[in-house]
Design a protein around this nucleic acid. Structure first.
Length: 224
DNA sequence: CACCCGATTATCT
DNA sequence: GATAATCGGGTGT
């Protein structure tokens, strides 16, 4: 109990702990395959108006390799939609698809993979589950964030968040290392029609919240 | 400006 | 397992 006026020279902010856990620019400045694997087990935090927060653990992600990857939006070069992918790593690339859904990506970059990204495909809800239930129109927890479009709806993520910096404490979206080290499996990617044999999808083993898509056909012998 | 189709989801049989 | 819904981006005329 100090008698001093603590409103002056406050020793720390309430978010200091969170700041120390935020994934750095360097984390994202690596090959998408590495980031996709290592992002599993990290905590996605969405700050809403009024400073309330939604959060969850990333349990499924896919790598997209830019110009080296026919399945990537960046494969045919820079356009108005994908220009964020060509910028600084550690920003969010959010796009709209199928006339109904948004998808959240993290921009990555390495010598080999420019304009690359990691698609966040599933999250295990942690904080703000009631808000997610409202956003999703269901109280079935396994249905809240078990897919790229579902998790964006649950976390209030739309195109207005395209380009946000993921490495700042005051950003609408940030990602933290909270020390979770899940066992990780890999498979071919979901929902693409080219480069289908690449095993660039990573997911945490033994969780109920990965996307339920089961149409994982046997990989063809060759690419193209 | 027309046409095609998608890094999906919900719902139906 | 199959498919309708839905619309903006990308491409070519």
């Amino acid at each position: 109990m100090s008698a001093y006026n603590t409103s002056i020279n406050a020793p720390s902010t309430p978010n200091q702990d969170a700041v120390s856990k935020i994934l750095s620019r360097e984390f994202y400045s690596r090959a998408p395959l590495v980031v996709a694997r290592e992002i599993i087990g990290k905590k996605l935090v969405r700050t809403l108006a009024g400073n309330s927060e939604l959060s969850g653990i990333i349990v499924e992600a896919e790598a997209y390799g830019g110009a080296h990857d026919p399945a990537s939006h960046a494969y045919r070069g820079k356009t108005a939609r994908n220009e964020v992918m060509f910028g600084e790593p550690g920003h969010a690339y959010v796009y709209f698809t199928y006339g109904a859904h948004y998808c959240l990506n993290f921009v990555t970059k390495s010598k080999m993979y420019n304009a690359s990204a990691v698609l966040v495909r599933a999250i295990e809800p942690v904080d703000g589950i009631e808000v997610m239930e409202d956003n999703r129109g269901t109280d079935v927890v396994t249905q809240l964030t078990s897919g790229p479009g579902k998790l964006c709806q649950a976390f209030c993520i739309d195109k207005s968040l395209n380009g946000v910096d993921l490495t700042k404490i005051d950003s609408a979206i940030r990602v933290e290392d909270v020390g979770i080290k899940p066992h990780i499996a890999r498979s071919i990617r979901i929902g693409i029609s080219v480069a289908v044999q690449r095993k660039w999808r990573f997911y945490a083993i033994s969780n109920l919240h990965v996307s339920k898509r089961t149409r994982l056909k046997a990989a063809p012998r060759r690419e193209s």
